[in-house]
């Protein structure tokens, strides 16, 4: 690979185009262009400057991750946090362990709680109908001896199910906030290549 200023900027641009707004991208590129300009005036070669800057791919990955985490913080959505997570994942191999696995576990936890909530919320009205059928003397499955208790029980589990769903929503928001903070911290500590320098 050619280690020239042009190549550095070309790679940086190509990796960040489409993710960063044009204005922000130009701002970043101008920083590196200035770095090369002053460095050359300082008597260093483009190759030397290229080498000490490190791989433009790594630089781009870090900028991308930072940008996507910030975006996920500003506009909260499943899609944004997922993209932020993926971009951070790309920063280092061991982020498979420190980012991907916690992320999957949290998503599974949230889904399981949500499903339980839905099941309880649906089971409630079903139990209610059975109880009413029993009260009316229609021989449905006799789940409980006292149909009146069944009515109260069904109301209880519906409420419980709905509370689970609502609680899950707040839990998801909580994890989202913590997740953003963790990803930011992760980016500030983890670098792309672990074997360099």
């Amino acid at each position: 690979m050619l280690q020239t200023e042009q190549e550095f900027i070309r790679i940086l641009r190509s990796r960040l185009e489409g993710t960063l707004p044009e204005e922000e991208l130009n701002d970043i590129v101008s920083d590196y262009a200035e770095h090369f300009r002053i460095g050359k005036a300082d008597g260093r070669s483009e190759e030397e400057l290229f080498c000490s800057l490190g791989s433009p791919d790594d630089v781009a990955r870090e900028i991308r991750a930072t940008h996507l985490v910030k975006k996920a913080e500003d506009v909260k959505s499943c899609k944004n946090i997922f993209h932020a997570m993926l971009a951070t994942l790309g920063l280092g191999l061991f982020n498979l362990v420190f980012v991907l696995i916690p992320f999957i576990l949290l998503v599974v936890l949230l889904l399981v709680v949500f499903l339980f909530g839905i099941v309880f919320a649906i089971a409630g009205p079903a139990a209610f109908i059975y109880s009413v059928l029993q009260i009316l003397g229609i021989p449905a499955f006799a789940i409980w001896q006292s149909p009146v208790a069944g009515v109260f029980f069904s109301i209880g589990i519906t409420t419980f199910g709905l509370l689970l769903v609502i609680g899950d929503y707040y839990l998801a928001r909580f994890f989202y906030r913590i997740g953003i903070r963790y990803l930011k911290w992760n980016i500030s500590v983890i670098t792309g290549t672990e074997d360099e320098a």
Binding site: D27, E34, L53, V59, T66, T191, A197
Partner: peptide, 27 residues
């Protein structure tokens, strides 16, 4: 400092990929 100067100050003492200082400055 301007970027190049700052990078120089840091890399004089710490051996690090100089390119990562700019993303840090943006943050």
């Amino acid at each position: 400092c301007y970027g190049y100067e700052l990078v120089g100050e840091i890399s004089k003492r710490i051996d690090i990929s100089e390119g990562t200082i700019y993303p840090l400055l943006h943050r």
